[in-house]
């Protein structure tokens, strides 16, 4: 019990109490500059939430981010892991090289990529070589979100790549030899051995990427300030603006609760869907 103590104290102060407070505040119109005029407003915050155009747009953008990042980062990580697994020389170099972006600070990477994306930056120079006009990337309402999504996937891939690599190396190599004897093509080996063996990791990886994508804040904040025209404005950004800049803690608390709720739903859906598909395979020929 004495060992539990310090950890419990920390968790209570920094996790449990704030969670409960957030829930309580979400039912009020708590205004940070003037706590005295707080009223209890019941579910008004919740019912008003989706009428707010900013929040609706933030929600849509967050979903859009997720739809691009999850497949891109997940498949990217898997591909990288498969490629590196086959390499015989300089394996460590590649592992480190692809992992380095992960440990770089989000803020630093964002600042870097502002330059890369700029009209006279590297990307546009390369495109120019192919005769393509310079693209506005983060300065265009239509291109900003995909640009940031791609950049974010690139940065995060290395982490899931390492996880997949670990999973790949845990696969019994004799399975591939047996498959070789069974005349399996490279693709079949991947589909029938690698993928099923990696399935539990895949679930973990996709859930973590999803949650990460949902929490997108730093990159839009630094690179586009949520613009242009709120096209990269995300839910967490809205929570920040509402709570910290506009001092409306009550409304921000409501957003936080709703946000957490959606993340939970997503996680549950993902787990159920991937487990179900696995079970379907098994029950097929019963």
């Amino acid at each position: 019990m004495a060992f539990f103590g310090p950890a419990l104290v920390l968790l209570t102060i920094f996790l449990f109490i704030p969670m409960i407070l957030t829930l309580i505040f979400s039912f009020t119109d708590f205004f940070a500059l003037n706590p005295d005029i707080t009223h209890f407003v019941g579910f008004e915050n919740y019912s008003q939430l989706f009428h707010d155009e900013d929040f609706r747009q933030a929600f849509g953008n967050t979903v859009r981010f997720m739809l691009i990042i999850v497949p891109l980062q997940g498949l990217g990580a898997l591909s990288l892991a498969l490629l590196i697994n086959k390499v015989t020389h300089c394996k460590k170099y590649f592992k480190v090289a692809f992992f380095v972006p992960v440990v770089m600070s989000l803020a630093v990477v964002s600042t870097l990529w502002i330059q890369i994306f700029s009209p006279e930056g590297i990307l546009n120079s390369i495109l120019g070589n192919f005769g393509i006009d310079p693209q506005p990337f983060i300065n265009s309402a239509s291109q900003a979100l995909p640009s940031i999504a791609v950049m974010s996937s690139w940065q995060g891939m290395g982490y899931q790549m390492i996880i997949f690599l670990g999973g790949l190396q845990a696969i019994n190599p004799a399975l591939y030899e047996a498959a070789e004897m069974d005349h399996a093509s490279g693709w079949k080996k991947f589909k029938d051995i690698t993928l099923p063996e990696l399935k539990p990791l895949c679930i973990f990886v996709f859930i973590t990427i999803t949650i990460g994508a949902f929490r997108m804040l730093v990159q839009p904040m630094i690179m586009t300030g949520g613009g242009p025209s709120h096209s990269t404005y995300t839910m967490v950004y809205d929570i920040y603006e509402t709570g910290t800049v506009n001092w409306e803690i009550g409304l921000a608390s409501t957003m936080s609760i709703v946000f957490a709720f959606f993340v939970m739903i997503l996680t549950v859906i993902q787990t159920v869907v991937t487990k179900e598909r696995g079970n379907k395979h098994a029950d097929k020929k019963k």
Binding site: S118, P119, P136
Partner: peptide
């Protein structure tokens, strides 16, 4: 065309 649609550093 007096200003750029896209910020130039």
């Amino acid at each position: 065309g007096y200003m750029s649609a896209v910020p130039v550093d």
